[in-house]
Design a protein around this nucleic acid. Structure first.
Lengths: 231, 231
DNA sequence: TGTTTTCTTAAACATTTCTTTAAGGACTCT
DNA sequence: AGAGTCCTTAAAGAAATGTTTAAGAAAACA
């Protein structure tokens, strides 16, 4: 899978520090875009999306604080503040105003790099859609969100009870399920001793599986004990 | 609209510091759960989801580092490390290992609070699905700003409830929505068991869709389970 | 306030699934 | 091999679930 290059906007009016920060970004494997004033930064922000922004507070043109507000209004990009201001009150104010992190000059190169990585990692983790759950066994596949069951590439039309039985069996593929287990798990009632209800549903399920793939047997009866998936 | 309380797991073996951190959490408007060992933390982590975790590195039972790894494997919760270790190398190592932040003892109360807020804000921002201006499915098109729905090129006149049901179905086209899902999402109330309200609105929606395009069936009933868009 | 629209509830009817019954097959034990 | 038990499957009836329509209540609008 092709990964899009990570682009980081570096907003810092001091030439040497800007160059140093760009070198950190580059050495971390990302693409830096240097930028020396608040008004210049505004142009880059309008031009495209940035994966992360390194922002100095003391800037010519627009201030860092104004820029922070604009970034937060218009995009989801994480913002790490780089600042000479050691005043604790300011740090807290900026963190509450929307910054994701606050690093005081003089900074440790490796720490800047580690914090960039940490924020990008968080962003990536939360931006990646959660995988939907899937149960698989042999050529059976169950999508638990859509409740869709396919066997040998064919979609099965199962009743609610049949689906529940199959999902339970596949959730523990080695386990023997007694009729009592099945009944109490799926019917959520105490087992009253009439075995045939489970038997019939099991028979119906087998019948549907067999129609989808006549060459295979999926469910095995253990005489006197219960049912298990056939290995 | 009712918001779910934010729950923060505070993992710290020093009684006084644990109590202080819990007070910060409480004063920030969140619900703290104090926890004094790595092994105790593990139990809480298995028991439920946490909105954020404050984690000391030096712990009895499981170490903070081992816990960090487990949290990252099993959940998406942000982790802020609280540590007495001033060693820069350790900080960098932990940030790279999956921590979202690293605060050195002795800490500033307001800074801890501000950083908690910053991480929760980031999490919330990224967890809230971006509003898409248009939802499409087959020949159905929904403009989420104007609330206009067209099917097969024809504008549908839907009531608020009908619109909400259709938008929800289309937002997850593969998913089965139980009547409970639909009711709780659209009515934002606990489901009291009367199914017919949902049924009637669904029938009305189907009727309007069918009038717009009599050749197609859009909504499929899965007996005993719920409704899904027909693929 | 009066009218219109929408929502909720009730009822009649339709459809599907479940449960029970029963017959025959398969397995286990003596 | 035969008897007893357990399991499988088919079929019928019961139960549950779902659909649509209409009436009354509630909400929205003029």
């Amino acid at each position: 899978m092709e990964t899009k290059p990570i682009k980081i906007l570096v907003i810092e009016d001091d030439d040497d520090i800007n160059e140093l920060l760009c070198k950190i970004v580059l050495n971390s494997g990302y693409i830096p875009q240097p930028c020396f004033s608040g008004t210049e930064a505004k142009l880059y922000l309008e031009k495209e999306e940035w994966d992360l922004i390194l922002l100095d507070l003391m800037l010519p043109g627009l201030t860092g604080e104004e820029l922070l507000r604009e970034v937060n209004e218009k995009s989801n990009s994480p913002v790490i503040i780089i600042s000479a201001l050691e005043e604790q009150q300011k740090k807290i104010e900026i963190l509450r105003a929307g910054a994701d992190d606050y690093i005081t000059k003089p900074f440790d190169l490796e720490e800047v790099s580690a914090r960039i990585d940490s924020h990008l990692r968080r962003y990536k983790r939360l931006a990646t859609p959660k995988q939907t759950s899937e149960l698989k066994y042999k050529d059976i596949s169950i999508n638990t969100e859509s409740k869709e069951v396919t066997v040998n590439g064919r979609v099965l039309s199962l009743t609610a009870r049949e689906y529940a039985i199959l999902a339970l069996l596949i959730s523990s593929p080695q386990k023997i399920f007694t009729r009592t287990n099945l009944f109490e798990s799926i019917w959520s009632e105490d087992y009253l001793g009439d075995e045939n209800t489970v038997n019939v549903h099991m028979s119906n399920l087998r019948s549907k599986l067999s129609r989808a793939n006549p060459d295979k047997e999926y469910i095995q009866t253990i005489w006197g004990m219960g049912y298990r998936l056939k290995n």
